[in-house]
């Protein structure tokens, strides 16, 4: 029991991040990139790594208002991520639709379709806010392991 708990504590130090752009204006995506690429906001010190494949992911970062055209693809992609996983909505678009709300072309809010665990509002959110969101997601993820 103790060993399993310790191993889980260790496992929680290696959350791999995966970005899904569900029709975002790219603003939030640029901010996400800064958390990895700019020395000032290095997420790798938390053990995070942006990975290219949904199969490798632990924490999913969704940006954009979930356009009608990409909705099915996003849902399918989300299904491809092995459990246990945590979903983070980055930016105001996946939370409420942001400036695109009430448009016929968007399906926001995202949590109608996916269980969103952490919201990081902002247009776009600051990198510090994104990192705080990721830190919160790690806490939730540790409980799910």
């Amino acid at each position: 029991m103790l060993l399993a708990r310790n191993l889980k504590r260790i496992a929680a130090r290696s959350p791999w991040l995966y970005r899904i752009n569900s029709g975002s204006c790219n603003g939030c995506d640029v901010e996400l990139a800064t958390t990895a690429c700019i020395p000032r906001y290095d997420v790798e010190r938390l053990g995070c790594q942006y990975c290219g494949s949904p199969r490798h992911a632990d924490i999913v970062l969704i940006t954009g208002p979930l356009n009608r055209h990409v909705k099915d693809a996003v849902l399918r992609l989300w299904e491809e991520i092995p459990e246990p996983k945590v979903t983070v909505a980055v930016g105001v678009c996946p939370i409420s639709g942001g400036i695109f709300r009430e448009s016929y072309a968007v399906c926001a809010p995202v949590d109608q379709y996916l269980p969103v665990d952490v919201n990081v509002p902002g247009c776009p959110p600051r990198p510090q806010a994104i990192i705080e969101g990721v830190a919160k997601a790690i806490e939730i993820w540790r409980a799910r392991l």
Partner: peptide, 23 residues
């Protein structure tokens, strides 16, 4: 110019992967 991960990060990654499902 980054801080970088802890030295044991590759070991942490392995333990983590052990808890995930192989699809």
């Amino acid at each position: 110019g980054r801080v970088g991960p802890p030295l044991l990060q590759p070991a942490f990654d392995l333990v983590k992967l052990g808890f995930k499902r192989t699809m």
